[in-house]
Write a protein that binds this DNA or RNA. Structure first.
Lengths: 203, 203
DNA sequence: ATTACTTTTGACCGTTTGGTTAATCCTTAT
DNA sequence: ATAAGGATTAACCAAACGGTCAAAAGTAAT
């Protein structure tokens, strides 16, 4: 039955996602994925021919989910400061529910940079400046935002939200020594990061 | 001869460092390390008994080098703003020479958080606030720095310098579409990050 | 030259790995 | 009931893996 197919295929896909995210491409074992899915190992190769193919599909889905969370925000017609607050809130909330994804994605990209190239080529980052000018032309003069420093600002926003999760292992160790709770830190970061950036870019 | 011993041991250690940093613990192969060092595979196990032991020593040395670059700055008697500029300059310069280290360290910690615990326990992060108060008590009133938001500020500084290297694979892809040169971006970031943080924390 | 000791090697071992295959099971249409 | 075709399995395979071992090569003292 085609329904049953989908059930099994999805069961495998979810198990593969769990194992790959936890162990990474190199550390993951096909047998382990089969066990997680509750099926025979040969069935993995029946639905997804090789480990590489299975991994690629898992990775592309995860990376896609990650980027798609950010894109729609740019188009909304709200003030720039609210946009910044919304981005941090949405992105950090998403990562709080999927705390291992950032580290997983960053590592696998470093391990195989070519894999991300085609994914990125579909997104037109060159248009960000144009969109920014169109949507905020009447309030842009209040901020120190130029086409030249836009990469710096964008990567700063990304870094402030992503880094705490990518470096979670270190931070939790450090915070323990300082008596700081990681979850509370993350919750506070939504507001802190937004106000920090707004303060920094305001003329 | 003991000198020859050291030569071989260091040759192995350097080869292991290269391979581990490039492929990660799981992706690295003992045979590959032996080839890089130009020796027999059995000799690896003669000097470093197992793959785990070899990796641990490589990792601890690299992680130590990374952290030791930051610690001394805190003790110097220079104004806070200069300290911030110096930290970004020194840290980003170091990473520019060792661009794969950040991603490597972050990933291996996520893969095995316990490994970093003992390394971190030797550093007393709880004292940072005390040092900050002692060294800058007469200029601290000019900035929005409190014991409560110190973790947020410290992780922000770390994120702004580390993230561009940890996410290099993505950024280079994005920048290519935008006509931005990564090396130039990194060089500019030393100043941008420092001024960005100073602007944000100044009352 | 011989002894004693460390360093280096090629060959080897047991296990694990991703992947294959032929047979079985299950569903459905006739 | 049965034929057909896809879904699922146990058993298997060759290659790669980390690790071992006994022998060879090198070194230094007697």
């Amino acid at each position: 039955m085609t329904e049953n197919d989908k059930q099994t295929e999805e069961k495998i896909f979810e198990a593969a996602t769990d194992v790959f995210v936890e162990k990474g491409m190199d550390g993951a074992r096909m047998q382990d994925i089969a066990n997680h899915a509750g099926i025979n190992k040969a069935l993995l190769h029946y639905y997804f021919r090789t480990k590489d193919q299975l991994f690629s599909k898992v990775f592309e889905k995860i990376a896609g989910r990650m980027f798609s969370k950010l894109a729609p925000v740019f188009d909304e017609k709200i003030p720039l400061e609210e946009k910044i607050r919304f981005i941090f809130n949405a992105h950090i909330s998403f990562m709080k529910d999927n705390p291992r994804l950032p580290g997983f994605i960053l590592n696998e990209i470093n391990r195989n940079p070519a894999r991300i190239k085609k994914l990125l080529s579909t997104i037109e980052f060159g248009k960000v400046w144009t969109i920014l000018c169109e949507q905020h032309k009447d309030e842009l003069h209040k901020y120190n935002i130029t086409q030249e420093n836009l990469p710096q600002i964008m990567t700063t926003i990304a870094s402030m939200s992503v880094f705490p999760f990518a470096a979670r292992g270190i931070l939790e160790g450090i915070f323990q020594n300082m008596g700081v709770n990681f979850d509370k830190y993350i919750e506070e970061r939504k507001v802190f990061a937004a106000e920090f950036v707004i303060k920094a870019i305001t003329k």
